[in-house]
């Protein structure tokens, strides 16, 4: 229920332009730019962006799911309940992970039909697992951004910044080894980098044995962001109670 109420884009008139139309043109834009600038196959950019577009659902969705409680004035009521905070917090992940997967699968289908994306035979399961873990990690950083947004005037500023940073730092369009050292360090600390690499390798035919490490690393990064988000949420709740700023906007 909270998904439908708090996720502003959950109605078709916003969902279709934003989560179907936007990713469609993002894929086409980067496939055209990337292949023009580097002479690489459009499929390379299509795969990177097909994974990255899940961030639109994960990062923006989770930011809204947490920050909108405050903006809609429901945060005090939620925090007044004795509900388990872990369940309250974790329960928000599932719809956004599923939505992120849906957007990403649509983008893969688009890449398959128009941009030459091909998956090695038998690689579907590993690609799917890597994708699922990547979307979870992305949703986790969205949760952290949502928790941060409880203290900000404009929460979507950070959400925009995170999705743009993923485009730049995580090997979505530029291979990691072509980035300067400091950008690689940033990329390795963000979700997506390891998961996307796992998706790329699995798409080329690598098995779970070869990409298992990358998937595990991505999962650990996602869990770390989720724990950080929960800790911040709890800290902000206590701080807001102590300072009577729960409903201050």
């Amino acid at each position: 229920m909270s998904y439908g109420m708090l996720f502003n884009w959950a109605r078709p008139s916003i969902y279709i332009p934003t989560l179907i139309g936007g990713p469609t043109f993002q894929l086409l834009f980067f496939a055209a730019l990337g292949s023009y600038a580097t002479n690489r196959s459009p499929a390379y950019f299509a795969i990177g962006n097909a994974v990255q577009v899940s961030a639109i659902a994960g990062v923006f969705g989770m930011t809204m799911a947490i920050a909108n409680e405050r903006w809609f004035g429901t945060l005090p009521a939620i925090l007044a309940t004795p509900a388990n905070r872990v369940a309250l917090f974790a329960g928000r992940f599932m719809p956004f992970v599923l939505n992120g997967l849906l957007v990403s699968l649509y983008a893969f289908a688009l890449g398959f039909v128009f941009l030459g994306v091909r998956l090695a035979p038998g690689s579907l399961a590993v690609v799917g697992l890597a994708l699922l873990v990547t979307v979870f990690a992305c949703t986790a950083i969205g949760a952290l951004q949502g928790a941060i947004s409880l203290r900000l005037r404009d929460g979507l500023f950070g959400a925009n910044l995170v999705t743009m940073s993923i485009l730049l730092f995580c090997g979505v369009n530029i291979p990691m080894n072509e980035l300067p050292g400091w950008m690689q360090v940033v990329g390795n600390l963000l979700p997506f980098t390891h998961g996307l690499e796992a998706v790329r390798q699995a798409a080329d035919g690598a098995g779970l044995g070869q990409v298992g490490g990358l998937i595990a690393t991505e999962a650990l990064i996602g869990i770390a962001y989720a724990v950080a988000a929960f800790a911040l949420f709890v800290y902000l709740e206590r701080s807001a109670r102590a300072n009577a700023t729960l409903d201050v906007r």
């Binding site: 730019l33 500023f157 730049l168 530029i174």
Partner: peptide
Amino acid sequence: EFFILLTFISPLIFATLAFFLFKSG
């Protein structure tokens, strides 16, 4: 903040991205 991001930060991110792409080529 949204328009500051749109006008000042987003073009720098896309310019950097495009620069590395052209450099790669």
